[in-house]
Design a protein around this nucleic acid. Sequence first.
DNA 1: TATGACTAGTTGTCTATACCAGTCAGAAGA
DNA 2: TCTTCTGACTGGTATAGACAACTAGTCATA
Lengths: 239, 239
Amino acid sequence: MIDKTSPLPLYYQIEEAIKQKIDKGEWESGSMISSEREFAENYEVSRMTVRQAINNLVNDGYLTRRKGKGTFVSGKKIEQKLLGLTSFTEDMKARGYKPASKLVSFQKIEANHKLAKTLEISQHDVVYEIKRVRLADEIPMAIETTFVPAELIPLNGTHIKEGSLYSQVENAGFHIDYATQSLEASIAREAESEILEIAKGAPVLLIQRQTFLTTGKPLELVHSVYRGDRYKFMIDMKR
Amino acid sequence: MIDKTSPLPLYYQIEEAIKQKIDKGEWESGSMISSEREFAENYEVSRMTVRQAINNLVNDGYLTRRKGKGTFVSGKKIEQKLLGLTSFTEDMKARGYKPASKLVSFQKIEANHKLAKTLEISQHDVVYEIKRVRLADEIPMAIETTFVPAELIPLNGTHIKEGSLYSQVENAGFHIDYATQSLEASIAREAESEILEIAKGAPVLLIQRQTFLTTGKPLELVHSVYRGDRYKFMIDMKR
DNA sequence: TATGACTAGTTGTCTATACCAGTCAGAAGA
DNA sequence: TCTTCTGACTGGTATAGACAACTAGTCATA
């Protein structure tokens, strides 16, 4: 069952063993698992070692402890797909649409004060401004404007048309860590309504996203205008 | 520094003490904190107890361990606010507003097919319907309608007016685990515009939230209509 | 029939100890 | 001078045991 001579820590082996049973569905969600003392006896390890394994699984949301009662398999596994920091492309695919993108403009601009501050660069530093129309099943879904510090990564229009920006980022050895987003409801302005093929004054969802790299530096600022009639923002949140 | 006679666990007291120093900025991000053995000596507790405190802070993203080197204060605190599954009240407080709530109606209704499916109960089961206007600094911010299965928890109007729904839930021994939310832009209808004190046709943000308990059962379905001119939904996402 | 005391089982907290495994600086040797 | 080794530090893993807090059922008593 578990190998005491293995270089893998005992608690880790136990952790994996339990996780497997849950993932395979052998232990139904909501059911009680063996007590810590039982595990300790069966695996011939100390109770503290079992606790370490169970602790990790509780932190990962697989198990739930109830004092005086026991340890139980948690409900759904939604938590695992939680936090999908997904690109437009992935997002649309997940919804069953065929995503496409139309490059409207690509240029280098000088950062103004606000943009410089957001991207944590100096004022007048060069920034790429990428304007795209995002399509789902050939129908306009959103207008997206992305700002990326030029010093971070060399880009040209071809890069954007072909691979995604994010794959360029990974190629350059950078890794996305997290993003902060804000969402608000608004009304389509004239220019937007034309591009999105909706009436002027129709509701739109404004999304602003700032993406950070593992280095802590901002990678990009993205402004999006989504059609209110076709787009719903979905998110799972954990306690 | 820490009180051995307190009913609060020692590891928890240590945890809070460390967290405070970080939050106050006394310990700069990136700097090394005392070693586990030092903490143990200073606080006169065993090293395992210190480890439990530090473990929790590492899980919460406050600290980072590096074998052979030490334990360090993590970078930005953004990750800590990550995933705030917050109530309206907490949300508004965090934004510096004074939250308030006005109970519009409270009644028991029979679940229709759709509601029953969402709440995972039988059709015609009794459900509480709670309608509230949410205020920030006395100004209407949102209209909120909450549906809770009656069999889950006994409620009356007083419960809602006084403590929050969530504290009732905790009192009943249930624990909130996660929620799925959807957000979309729309236009204020007549009735909504009156309550929210905005023009008919003004943009509103529709938020729908389904909250789940650790048992896996849905606790509630919440429909909210937020004023588009005053409310911005903020979220941090990781990786 | 209730009520309260007891009991066996659970997780929660905490100790004292041991040794392993990286890291780094400085001593010892070439 | 350069290299290697050693020791003293760090966190990582693991043990055995103790008692507290909580849960749920049993049983005796009022």
